[in-house]
Amino acid sequence: MKIQIKKSTILIGLLLIVGFILPRFAGEYYIHISVLVLFYAYMAVSWNILGGYAGQHSLGHALFMGIGAYTSTYLFTVIGLTPWIGMWLGGAFAGVIGGFVGYLCFRYGVKGPYFALVTIALAEAAVYIVTNIPSIGGAQGLEVAWTGNAPQLMQFDGKSGYYYMILVMTIIAVWLSSWLIKRRFGYQLLSIRENEDAAEALGVNTLRLKIQATVISAVMTALGGTFFAQYFTYINPRAVFGEGPSVQILLFAIIGGIGTVWGPVVGALVLIPIAELSRGWLGGTFAGAQILLYGTVLVLTMLFMPNGILGLYHKFLGKFQNRQSDGGKSEAL
C-alpha cells in the first residue's frame, strides 16, 4: 500500500508543532498577540457554523459571548464556582437561548438581512437589560478577582496557561467544524445556504437543522465568552454584548473566507498581528485606529476579494472552490 501524505496534512502538522512550542520562544507580548489570534479564530469558527455553513448571518453573536462571559463570571464572583464548570453552564444557557431565538426566527421564516436585524436587536436589548441589573454589575460590569496562579479556577500566572487553553479550544473547534462539514449534517447545512427550497424538497428538515446550527454556534461562542472574561479579567455590557464584539466575532470569517473550514483561522492569523503591531507602533494616541483598520480591510475585502483570502487563494490556484454564494439568484442589473 502506498502511503500518501497530503500537503495539507503536513501544513496542519507544522502549525500544530509551532502552536505548541511557541510559548517557549516568544515573549509575553507575542504570546498575547497569539492568544488574540487564537481567540478570534475560535470565535469566527464558531460563528461560521451558523453564518458560513448554514448561511444565516447573525450580526448579534455577542449575545452568546456575553451570556457565556456573564454566567461563568457571576457564578465565580458570587458563589465561587470555578469557571471550568461555569463555562459549561454558560454554554448551556446560551444553547437554550440560541435554540429559542433560532426557533422563533426560523419558525416565522425570518431570513437574510432580517435575521441579521433580529440578532442585532437581541444583542442590543441584552446590553440594556444587563446594564439595568445592578446585582450583576450594571453598567460597571464585573471584575474577575485575581486569586493568584490557580489553574483549577482558570487563572494562570503568565500568559502561557491562557495560550494553551485557547489553543486547545481552537483546535477542537476547527476539528469539530471540519468534521461536521464532511457528514450529512454539514452537507445539509450547506444545501440550506445554497438553496433552501430545493433542500426542503429533497427531504432536508431545514427548520430543525437551522435551529441545531444556531445552538451549536451559540454554545461554542459562549465558551469563548468565558475565556474572554478570564483572560481580560473584566467584562461590561458593551464589551461583551455590544456591536463591537458582534462585528469582531464574524469579521475574521468574512475576511478569511466565509463558509470554509480554515477561512476564519486564516482571517484572524493575517489580520490580528497587523492590527496589534500597528497599534504598538502608533502607541495609544489613536483610539479607534485598530477598528478603523478593520473597517477599511472589510470594505476593501468586499470590493476586491468578495470570497475572502481563501477565495482569492483558490482563484490563483485555478481551482476556484468558493463556498460562498448567493445561490445564483442575484439578478442582472
Partner: peptide
Amino acid sequence: KDPPINQIMLTVG
C-alpha cells in the same frame, strides 16, 4: 449584485 452578506458587511465596514 453581490450576495446580501457582502453588502451587509460592506456597509458595516
